[in-house]
Design a protein around this nucleic acid. Sequence first.
DNA 1: CTCTTATACTTGTTTAAACAAGTTCTATAT
DNA 2: ATATAGAACTTGTTTAAACAAGTATAAGAG
Lengths: 243, 243
Amino acid sequence: MPKSKFELIYIDIKRKIESQEYNYQDLLPSENTLSRNYKCTRNTIRRAIQSLVSEGYVQTMHGIGVRVIYQPVDQNTFTIGGIESFQESAARNHRESKTKVIQFTELIVDERIAKHSGFPIGTELYYIQRVRYLDGKPLILDINMFLKSLIPNLTKQIAEKSIYEYLENELGMSIVTSKRKVTVERITEIDEKYLELNDYNCLAVISNQTYNSDGILFEYTKSRHRPDYFCFQDTATRKRTSS
Amino acid sequence: MPKSKFELIYIDIKRKIESQEYNYQDLLPSENTLSRNYKCTRNTIRRAIQSLVSEGYVQTMHGIGVRVIYQPVDQNTFTIGGIESFQESAARNHRESKTKVIQFTELIVDERIAKHSGFPIGTELYYIQRVRYLDGKPLILDINMFLKSLIPNLTKQIAEKSIYEYLENELGMSIVTSKRKVTVERITEIDEKYLELNDYNCLAVISNQTYNSDGILFEYTKSRHRPDYFCFQDTATRKRTSS
DNA sequence: CTCTTATACTTGTTTAAACAAGTTCTATAT
DNA sequence: ATATAGAACTTGTTTAAACAAGTATAAGAG
């Protein structure tokens, strides 16, 4: 519950950037100044700054300072980024969400599924198909596979609300790492049936492997997104200037 | 040139994971063991491990250890991830690349372009359109905008080879942060003309803002990818278990 | 006026140590 | 036999200090 010092500092600086107390292209106060202000060591400040770097808020410059490169984004489209459930994204974008379960069954992993899911052959899974609605519009077709051995009593009722909420609040499981691929695939009959695709003949697919806090792969999901409401965000930083 | 200690350790452990000296689901040797082996402090080890965490190679578990969650990926598709030029990606995927410049002109930023590129109105830019071929197939239509004031003598000849190589090797500029959005858009006449889209009526678009080592936005690029050869990879980690 | 040099900043790397907190196993008391 | 408590591990957080290395400015030499 009581967050660590570097995290509080990170949150505070982030807030100051978002509220434009520190403006785009400004330099932050120097690490020594910040460590005096926040009454901590330079190390703790550096750790907070590192988090901001990895999220594309600032960029450090050796011998010069730390430059703010955050620019506010317009909230038109339904953006995805970081680890977030559909429910959380909907709330963050101030939209109303609904979920319809169209299939709820079980499955044993064969060679074909093993290859792209990362689950070993023979693993018992829940296999769930759900349509996700945002403000009444069907936007996403989720195809979830959950490790049965880790999630004892998953039901259709839970799937209709939020599986992640169940995992985190009821089972005390926590999600740590998410490996994702974004591709574009041809539409299938199921897509056409449940999503209002107009005349689009392909859609965006996020394939997702999720690991819990024990480092166990417990979920593989394909989220099939209607193109007109799809936006995936990302920030990358280069490690080094030269070899 | 002489890399830092933590980076050498990071590279060494990464190599051991990729060569499966440390296997999927294994625990790494403890931080204290590693610090003895590499003759450094625990801090330096922890820094190396942090890099591995952010790339989805390992996951730390409080009180338990550091678990390897790396699984080798099959190199069928042309994957994108991290900051990489087209040339570099091609080399990494062992493909032959070619570039054709179809437009090379200049441009002054108006309100519409300012809004999505992040450049201020009135900025002078190079405007370049290029088709990227991989193994003879046209896969990507790149629409580049480069800040003219930072790149004095960009020519069509350079654009035909590699602009990034020119920036890094000739101008000594270094690329640090890249903010990206992935969307799916309807095809345009130009897409249809230059990419062999068969009957796809949309394609994957990576919109890219790139910042140099001075924290200056110097590039905005839209890369329009043929769906059948598009794969974007990403790893995300959750910050905290609970509030 | 121009160039060099010193110096006072900035961030980057590494060491060392202490304590907090989570997990696992073992010895002890009941 | 079964709990409980403790010891011995693990990773997580924070402090403190020193030095390296890049950048800017101001003082001084030519």
